[in-house]
Amino acid sequence: MNIFRLAGDMTHLASVLVLLLKIHTIKSCAGISLKTQELFAIVFLTRYLDLFTNFISIYNTIMKLIFLGSSFSIVWYIRRHRVVRRSYDKDQDTFRHFFLMWPCLILAIFINEKFTLKEVMWTFSIYLEAIAILPQLVMLQRTRNIDNLTGQYIFLLGAYRAFYILNWIYRYFTEEHYVHWITWVAGVIQTLLYGDFFYYYFQSWKNNVKLELPA
């Protein structure tokens, strides 16, 4: 474990906590895309199939359980919670997200490191994670006005991805046989998707004004 990997995991964890905090304490999911949250739940479910068969460390197991538990409880909150679900902006969240899964699955069947069920599902989760943020970004563009917690949530998610790229660069130079084209290409694409958001986030931070995306 290097410092970049740890920073990546911690910003990822923080992003989830910020979102849960918003939903749990304010009882609101305004500005949050259920479509993106459902995709994240599928990402973790298909990636952690080896949760009970491939032990790596206590840290890994606990983090996996946190990401699984949090992603499914966020989806539950938005869909089922009596108060929270009323704040869900359904009309702004119209992305046909399940259509994103097919190309990811087909790509995973053809481009993977090993053709086994577990490996194909793992690769599928890597591809799906790369584009899972799209419904959320589309929703941001539409609503334009972004509250602080939603802005911080997306910023932390983007930071998590950026730290993972630094982690891969570090591991490439410090470990033998560390070449993983699939995760790298998917990871870079995923990080680039946050580029636009980062730009406006830093602008608003620098000028000390409320974050607002251009029409």
Binding site: M1, I56, Y178, V179, T183
Partner: peptide, 10 residues
């Protein structure tokens, strides 16, 4: 750690 294993990432 085992070299080159990306499955230890989250």
């Amino acid at each position: 750690s085992i070299s080159g294993d990306s499955k230890d990432e989250l």
